[in-house]
């Protein structure tokens, strides 16, 4: 058996176009996941607000307890039954964002809870409202502790984004499959696809580590 990378080289423009789509979907989902995770994480700090807390807890339990693929299919194939026909790319971003957000919310909650209680007390004793104290004092410190686990989440998000190819989104995975369908060079093409994911995940890790380093140096 011989390896033939000619189809990969020939299909490289398509693969790269697909990689760009993967980056776009992942980046949008990352933002959604961050906003959602922050919100849900903060809500889950306070069980006294029963309704919001219950909603947030139900969200985390359901999303973490069911497969991402099923969630994506619910959005893409299920919602149209209610007349809600979202574009595939939107389904992909929302599905990935909601999924990743449930994990991020736990990262956020854990990081906030790891900040000494005295920090909140000191801020409140100076007259800051809960929101001001959270924003000025607790979150900036918690953010630093979120970065390492957030790196893991980002890697997972990038890799999970391969599933959106099943929603007819032309990401790097789907472009790869398209090339295989005409060249029948599965091994070579999937190797190339894997290499692209590998580069993306490591680039993301590197960026996050730079942020982490900078914050550590700044604050002595």
């Amino acid at each position: 058996m011989t390896l033939d990378f000619a189809p990969v080289l020939e299909g490289l423009p398509e693969l790269l176009k697909g990689a760009v789509v993967t980056i776009e979907v992942t980046a949008a989902a990352f933002v959604l996941s961050g906003v959602l995770g922050l919100l849900v994480g903060i809500i889950r700090l306070n069980p006294a607000r029963r309704f919001l807390y219950g909603l947030a807890t139900g969200y985390v339990a359901f999303i973490r307890g069911t497969p991402l693929l099923v969630q994506l299919f619910l959005l893409f194939f299920g919602l149209p039954q209610f007349g809600i026909l979202l574009p595939a790319i939107l389904c992909g971003v929302i599905g990935l964002g909601i999924y990743s957000g449930s994990y991020v919310s736990e990262v956020v909650r854990g990081a906030i809870q790891s900040i000494d209680r005295g920090q909140m007390e000191a801020a409140r004793s100076l007259g800051m409202s809960y929101r001001e104290a959270m924003w000025e004092v607790v979150l900036p410190q918690a953010f630093r502790r979120m970065l390492p686990p957030l790196g893991n989440e980002t890697i997972a998000l990038i890799k999970n984004s391969a599933l959106v190819s099943l929603l007819t989104i032309d990401d790097v995975m789907r472009e790869g499959q398209r090339i295989i369908s005409t060249s029948f060079r599965a091994l070579e093409v999937y190797l190339a696809v894997a290499l692209i994911y590998f580069i993306l995940t490591n680039a993301a890790t590197w960026i996050l580590r730079q942020i982490e380093k900078r914050m550590t140096v700044e604050r002595g």
Partner: peptide, 22 residues
């Protein structure tokens, strides 16, 4: 709101300092 305003006028010093490390 009023509690925050009153706290602002009531300084508190803690055993463990609780300075903001960032």
């Amino acid at each position: 709101k009023e509690l925050n305003a009153l706290r602002a006028e009531t300084g508190m010093v803690f055993q463990s300092f609780n300075l903001f490390p960032h």
